Amino acid sequence: MAEPFFRTERLTVGYNGVPLIRDIEIRLDRGRILTLIGPNGSGKSTVLKSITNYLKPLCGAVYLESRAVGGMTGGDLSRLVSVVLTEKPRTELMTCGEVAATGRYPYTGMLGILSEEDRRLVREAME
């Protein structure tokens, strides 16, 4: 059986050392969609934040393409994963092109300055 694109092993998530959900086991092949369903406050966003390393897991591990997410740099992780959380981004003063261009930030330097190639890729994606 092929290694899944994404997997967790005995992942425990929570806040301030207090577990909210324990022993989460997820396996996901490339190109598949995973939906987390549950009532408000059940931990869906906490799981997503832990998977993307925005929140450190209390226990266990997350792997992406067989690499431990906890050992990746922010830049490496942002090239492989994107997530839309429930917090509403403040885009009311941004154009559609500016919102689309944020997808290129993992490929720019620390200042987030887009190259001509980045701008071309944004235009192509919007078309």
Rank of each mutant, 00 (worst) to 15 (best):
A2H: 09
F6P: 03
T8M: 11
T8Q: 07
E9F: 03
R10L: 09
V13S: 13
G14D: 10
G14V: 00
Y15Q: 09
N16V: 00
N16K: 14
N16R: 15
G17R: 03
G17Y: 09
G17A: 04
V18M: 12
V18E: 15
P19S: 04
I24S: 07
E25A: 08
E25F: 11
I26N: 09
R27T: 11
D29C: 01
D29A: 07
G31I: 03
I33R: 15
I33D: 14
L34E: 13
T35I: 03
S42I: 00
S42Q: 01
S42E: 10
G43Q: 03
K44S: 06
K44Q: 03
S45K: 07
T46I: 00
T46Q: 08
T46L: 00
L48Q: 06
K49W: 03
K49V: 02
K49R: 14
S50E: 06
N53C: 09
Y54D: 12
Y54S: 10
Y54F: 08
K56H: 11
P57H: 04
L58E: 06
C59A: 15
A61G: 12
V62L: 06
Y63I: 01
L64T: 04
L64G: 09
E65V: 00
E65L: 05
R67I: 00
R67F: 09
A68Y: 02
V69Q: 08
G70C: 08
M72L: 12
M72I: 02
M72Q: 10
M72G: 05
T73Y: 12
G75E: 15
G75D: 15
G75C: 03
D76M: 09
D76P: 00
D76H: 11
D76Y: 12
L77T: 05
L77K: 07
L77E: 08
S78E: 01
S78M: 06
S78C: 07
R79D: 02
R79L: 02
R79E: 08
L80N: 13
L80Y: 03
S82V: 02
V83C: 12
V83F: 08
V83M: 10
K88F: 03
P89A: 11
P89M: 13
E92D: 15
L93E: 14
L93H: 14
C96S: 15
E98I: 01
E98Q: 15
V99I: 15
A101Q: 03
T102C: 11
R104Q: 10
R104T: 04
R104N: 09
Y105G: 00
Y107E: 10
Y107S: 04
G112L: 04
I113R: 13
I113H: 11
S115A: 04
E116R: 11
E117S: 08
E117Y: 05
D118E: 06
R119T: 02
V122F: 12
V122C: 09
A125I: 05
M126C: 06
M126D: 07
M126A: 05
E127K: 11
E127F: 14
